[in-house]
């Protein structure tokens, strides 16, 4: 899971073009939106596209839990793993 968290930090930096931000600057349990990194709704959509492309996962945009999945690196990593497990069942 730690490797996946590191990978997600780099994915966020690359995808959202966060110049000057290093993976170590992003705490795994810090909020990604609403403060924290200061990401906005376009970033959330952009990140969703990048996650689908990299991990071939399904993201249900109608899910009431979506905001919780994208709350932090830690919750996002948990979401990616759960979706990958679903697709391998």
């Amino acid at each position: 899971m730690k490797n996946l968290e590191a990978e997600l930090k780099q994915l966020i930096i690359d995808t959202l073009e966060l110049e000057g931000v290093n993976p170590k600057d992003i705490a795994s349990d810090a909020p990604l939106f609403s403060g924290g990194l200061g990401l906005d709704s376009i970033d959330a959509l952009e990140l969703g596209v990048a996650l689908k492309k990299k991990y071939h996962i399904h993201i249900d945009t109608n899910s009431a839990e979506l905001a919780n999945y994208f709350a932090s690196i830690k919750t996002l990593a948990g979401f990616v793993v759960s979706q990958q497990n679903k697709s391998t069942l």
Partner: peptide
């Protein structure tokens, strides 16, 4: 068949 980048689109 790829997804569209929302920020690029906007």
């Amino acid at each position: 068949g790829e997804g569209v980048s929302p920020s690029r689109f906007s």
